[in-house]
Simulated scan of single mutants.
Amino acid sequence: MSKYPIQVMIIEDDETATNIYEKFTQKVDGFQVVATTRTGKQALELIKIFTPDLILLDVFLPDMKGTDLLWEIRKQVRGVDVILITAANDVDTLSEAIRGGAFSYLMKPIMIDKFLDTLKQYKETRLALLNLKTIEQEDVNSFFRKNSHQEQGTVVVKTVDLPKGIDKHTLKKVRQSMKETNVSINAEELARVIGASHSTVRRYLEYLVAQDELEVEIIYGTIGRPERRYRKKSTKERVHRTNG
């Protein structure tokens, strides 16, 4: 990663929401909020002075629609990425965001863990682009989200490189099994489901815990070692907003 932080501009007319986005953006290593603005006009004036790396853009602004502002930004500068944050749930707005080249589209009320995950995925994608000299089709698929999945309106980009010992096909199988499981499960039980060894499944489950995708519960019995049971991570922090 570049030694310089990723500079972020927040374009949002709600002061409370702006403060929340700024607070949590600063929590992710490598990001720095350098400007905030409430209107499209102010944003365009700021962009004439400096170009941020990333813009967090609300759709419902007082003076223009965020998707229209996205196209105006594209006319002025190319080296800036945009994540839309909005209560808009219509297909036309989403389609316009995709055509405008938005990196992601987060729907309000914002789930904080998804907000943080999206920033981390943006940083990983940016790092991968900086480090790659040549590309394969798999890299292209990853950057263009062909092999990604969508949850709660967030486009989640597949990480280009996995740690040693983590195979993408096995990881996909474990993720899918956990997604379909509504109760906690231990490594031995999941191993029987997917037809893999206990040690292999345990390694993948611990990897997903480290990625903050699963949570683990330790059950202390009367005999033997404590049992580790895994479940899908529950969302506890939400940001609510009634308009915009």
Rank of each mutant, 00 (worst) to 15 (best):
residue 68 D to W: 01
residue 68 D to H: 09
residue 69 L to V: 10
residue 69 L to Q: 09
residue 71 W to H: 14
residue 71 W to L: 12
residue 71 W to F: 14
residue 72 E to N: 09
residue 73 I to A: 12
residue 73 I to V: 13
residue 73 I to L: 01
residue 73 I to M: 11
residue 74 R to E: 09
residue 74 R to Y: 05
residue 74 R to H: 02
residue 75 K to F: 00
residue 75 K to D: 03
residue 76 Q to R: 04
residue 76 Q to A: 00
residue 76 Q to D: 06
residue 76 Q to E: 06
residue 76 Q to G: 01
residue 76 Q to W: 02
residue 76 Q to V: 10
residue 77 V to G: 02
residue 77 V to I: 14
residue 79 G to K: 12
residue 79 G to E: 08
residue 79 G to M: 11
residue 80 V to K: 04
residue 80 V to A: 10
residue 80 V to L: 00
residue 80 V to S: 07
residue 82 V to W: 09
residue 83 I to T: 08
residue 83 I to H: 06
residue 84 L to W: 06
residue 84 L to D: 05
residue 85 I to C: 14
residue 85 I to V: 12
residue 86 T to I: 01
residue 87 A to C: 00
residue 88 A to D: 10
residue 90 D to K: 07
residue 90 D to I: 04
residue 91 V to L: 12
residue 91 V to W: 04
residue 91 V to E: 13
residue 92 D to K: 15
residue 92 D to G: 11
residue 92 D to I: 12
residue 93 T to H: 07
residue 93 T to Y: 03
residue 93 T to S: 07
residue 94 L to N: 05
residue 94 L to S: 11
residue 94 L to Q: 13
residue 95 S to P: 13
residue 95 S to M: 10
residue 96 E to G: 07
residue 97 A to H: 00
residue 97 A to M: 10
residue 98 I to Y: 11
residue 98 I to N: 05
residue 99 R to F: 07
residue 100 G to T: 09
residue 100 G to R: 09
residue 101 G to A: 02
residue 102 A to P: 13
residue 103 F to L: 09
residue 103 F to E: 10
residue 104 S to T: 12
residue 105 Y to D: 05
residue 105 Y to L: 07
residue 105 Y to G: 05
residue 106 L to M: 11
residue 106 L to H: 07
residue 107 M to T: 15
residue 107 M to S: 06
residue 107 M to I: 15
residue 108 K to H: 03
residue 108 K to Y: 02
residue 108 K to L: 05
residue 108 K to Q: 00
residue 109 P to Q: 01
residue 110 I to G: 05
residue 111 M to C: 02
residue 111 M to H: 13
residue 111 M to F: 13
residue 112 I to S: 00
residue 112 I to E: 03
residue 114 K to I: 07
residue 114 K to Y: 14
residue 115 F to L: 08
residue 115 F to G: 08
residue 116 L to E: 02
residue 117 D to F: 12
residue 117 D to N: 09
residue 117 D to L: 14
residue 117 D to E: 14
residue 117 D to Q: 15
residue 118 T to K: 06
residue 119 L to S: 07
residue 119 L to T: 07
